[in-house]
Amino acid sequence: RERTTFTRAQLDVLEALFAKTRYPDIFMREEVALKINLPESRVQVWFKNRRAKCRQ
């Protein structure tokens, strides 16, 4: 699998959701994945990595 490159628009949507909740449930992830045209698994990993970035 190639490394996913997120567009600015995708990142804006993800960051906005992250500001609301750091742990979105499966339904929220599915919804945002459809909206920004990414698989739900990529959204899940993005959140995992974003939380890790926050902890540093």
Rank of each mutant, 00 (worst) to 15 (best):
K53G: 12
R29N: 03
F6M: 13
V43N: 03
K48E: 15
L34A: 14
R42K: 07
A33M: 03
C54W: 06
T7F: 03
I26R: 15
E30C: 10
I26N: 08
D12L: 06
L38F: 05
R22Y: 04
N37E: 11
I36P: 02
F18W: 14
V43A: 01
A52K: 12
R51E: 06
T4V: 08
L38R: 06
R3M: 10
R42S: 12
R3V: 13
A9C: 11
V45K: 08
P24C: 00
R8Q: 15
L17M: 13
K48R: 10
F18P: 05
L34E: 14
P39C: 04
E31K: 11
T21N: 13
T21V: 08
Q56T: 05
R51Y: 02
R1K: 15
R29T: 12
L11H: 08
I36E: 03
F6Y: 13
L14M: 08
D12V: 12
T7C: 08
T21K: 07
R3H: 13
L14H: 06
P39G: 02
L38D: 01
R8K: 14
I26K: 13
K35Q: 13
E40D: 07
M28L: 13
E31Q: 10
T5P: 10
L17H: 05
I26H: 14
R8H: 13
R8G: 08
D12I: 08
L17K: 04
R55Y: 13
A19L: 11
E30D: 12
F47I: 15
R50D: 02
K35M: 12
C54R: 06
Q44C: 11
S41I: 06
A9H: 10
A19K: 08
Y23I: 04
E31C: 05
T21C: 09
K48F: 05
Q44I: 06
S41L: 06
V32D: 00
R8V: 08
E31T: 04
K20Y: 01
E31G: 06
A19V: 10
F6S: 02
R22H: 14
A9P: 09
M28D: 07
M28N: 04
Q10E: 04
V32K: 04
P24T: 00
R8I: 03
E2C: 02
A16W: 04
R51G: 02
K48Q: 15
F6G: 03
A52S: 09
E40G: 04
V43G: 02
F6R: 01
Y23D: 11
T4R: 08
F6K: 04
M28I: 04
A19S: 12
F27Q: 15
R42T: 14
S41E: 14
